[in-house]
Design a protein around this nucleic acid. Structure first.
Lengths: 146, 146
DNA sequence: CGCCAATACTTAAGACCGTCAAGTAAACAA
DNA sequence: TTGTTTACTTGACGGTCTTAAGTATTGGCG
């Protein structure tokens, strides 16, 4: 009953494995960020800023209170990694934009991550594709809130 | 060129997907913990206490400084979810033990997690097995530190 | 044995993250 | 205009985490 197919794991085992992978990934991210003097939260914010985003939008992406974002952006702005720009259409809104320095630093963090996670290189192309497809199926359900 | 096999994802795509899944999982865990008045850190500690562990051991598992553990255990102990017991063999050591209440509360958190992540139920048995095997292969490399 | 280094834990100070409650300013609608 | 909603900030408070210093115990070594 188990020639080619691996043993079927219990749901709990799978859950725990997923958690282990998740925390390992998070630790690597935090380490890479720290290496550049950023907290993981700061790096996470910077990672969203491919395009300008209002404070409110950032809060939504981070799933946290808007007042929290104020402080994080304050600290990033103090280091010139980010800029607040007035929105011409609505003067209540402040759009957060990554500076060149900001883009550069997050690029490096990602690079370092990618380097570290060369772990993925251990997978062949077919395996990568399979993993990707499976995770892609999990995603929508997991990102719905409880 | 894509009859049965899915498209091969770039390493970056896979990395981002893995991150997305990781943070979704973490959010669910935090939410379940909060539902029982625990921070995610506290829940994480409680989750380790299947068996008694010295403070030092906890710090190692959490990959953080020992002084940090003192505070976390203080708060858990104040709520009677955990107890410090003197180690008979080495009087410097304090073993942390989950109380019945502690075991019960973490059981419920897990249950709620498992409930939420009924997302995994969407996978068939064979798919679960494949996913498990793939993640299991990633694990050792990812858990090595940078 | 007596001394000294290593180990386990705690304490205190300081930074950051996160929440809630309250406040300001602008937009918008009746 | 008046009142409501929306975007953001501020302040207070608790939790997490680090670093540096301090206490107690262990264990090695002359």
């Amino acid at each position: 009953m188990s020639t080619t197919a691996p043993q079927a794991p219990t749901k709990l085992q799978l859950l725990e494995l997923l958690a282990a992978i998740g925390t390992a990934q998070w630790r690597d991210f935090a380490a890479a960020a720290a290496h550049h003097g950023l907290t993981s939260t700061q790096a996470k914010v910077l990672a969203q800023l491919d395009r300008p985003l209002p404070m409110r939008g950032l809060a939504a992406l981070l799933v946290c209170d808007a007042s929290n974002v104020t402080g994080i952006v304050d600290r990033l702005e103090a280091r010139e990694l980010v800029r607040r720009e007035a929105d011409p259409a609505d003067r209540r809104v402040k759009n957060v934009v990554a500076t060149d320095a900001g883009r550069e630093i997050i690029r490096r963090v990602r690079e370092e991550m990618q380097e570290t996670h060369g772990a993925l290189d251990a997978l062949g192309e077919a395996e990568s594709a399979t993993l990707y497809a499976l995770l892609e199926r999990l995603r929508p359900t997991m990102e719905k809130d409880a």
